[in-house]
Amino acid sequence: MERYAKISKKDFNRWLESLEDHGKLYGPKKKDGRHVFRPIKDVKELDLNYISTILPPKKYYFPQKERLLKFKIKPFKTAKAIRKFEEFVLFGVHTCDIAGIQCMDVVFRQEPLDANYINRKDRMTTVGIECLTPCDKYANCVSMGNHVPKGGYDIMLTDVGNKYIIHINSAKAESILRQRSYIKKCISADRYLLDAVRKKKEKIFKEEFIGRLTELYAVFSKLYDSEIWKDVGKRCVGCGNCTAVCPTCYCFDVLDEVSLNLNDGLRYRLWNSCQMDDFAKVAGGEDFRPGRSARQRHRYYRKFKYPIDKFSRYFCTGCGRCSRTCMAEINLTETVNSLIREHRNVSIGI
């Protein structure tokens, strides 16, 4: 198959309906004025015109509470908690969230491999949708370079008017496109439309940070003790929303639950966060990261410094969720820009 194909909008729902043979369909749906990824039972519920969902799609390959192991106490026995993982199609994912998937992949595919993550992820087909206009004042996707498709998906859809251009990026993608007469080959005029859309995007998507990523690395290397962290910490209420909604936060706690027969149990993992009071506490009550300033700083360093050293990758996708969800109005773009300004001032000796 070619790398590009197209589908007319009038055939779109037909295609969606045909996807049920490839597993459960999940996509963005309206909820209370916001959007959430949910199972799509009727294709009319799918709403591709949306600002980032409350939770990123990570909940499908790294669920909030996930079973890891079954056990019996007497006689002691353990077994797999999940026998069969389901095939599923994650539909309508923004490019920022696809960047999030790529970050998670880097983490969970390190040795030792995370079996649950890989089992889910390998059964996932990702269909992305390209954003054509900036979503709101919270996103910083342009500075992170994630407002355009950069791989990490099976299919990317770009709306070019009365049809979608389909970028085919994997063998899996081919399997959900083939034998459908309404999926057509792209002709050069279609490629021209796609180029035009991208050119237009260049004009309307503006960098949110006042500096480039290369400068940012230097900023974070120098400003660990900046007063800016004190200010952020003072405003932070410690609710943990920012880490829960982050597409690249992957910390979890492992807990055992026993059923009421007091013999059969389940070991599971539960999302956890560096913003929590007990997160960095160890035996004896010592806390390695007390206070909200240090915890907020840690969150930023886990996006803009540590993963660059470890994986050569920024772990901020620019989705804007952390800023959007913060009732204390701590804004990532503002924090980063304040840091850049302070760093420039220090450099020239103000």
């Binding site: 209370d32 916001r34 943990g240 929303n241 829960a244 966060s273 929590m276």
Partner: peptide, 20 residues
């Protein structure tokens, strides 16, 4: 639990009341 209700609320993907 020694963490706030927001943690569970976010896991349940409720729309934050402050946003309403």
């Amino acid at each position: 639990p020694n963490y706030p209700v927001c943690v569970e609320c976010k896991m349940n993907e409720n729309v934050c009341l402050y946003q309403k």
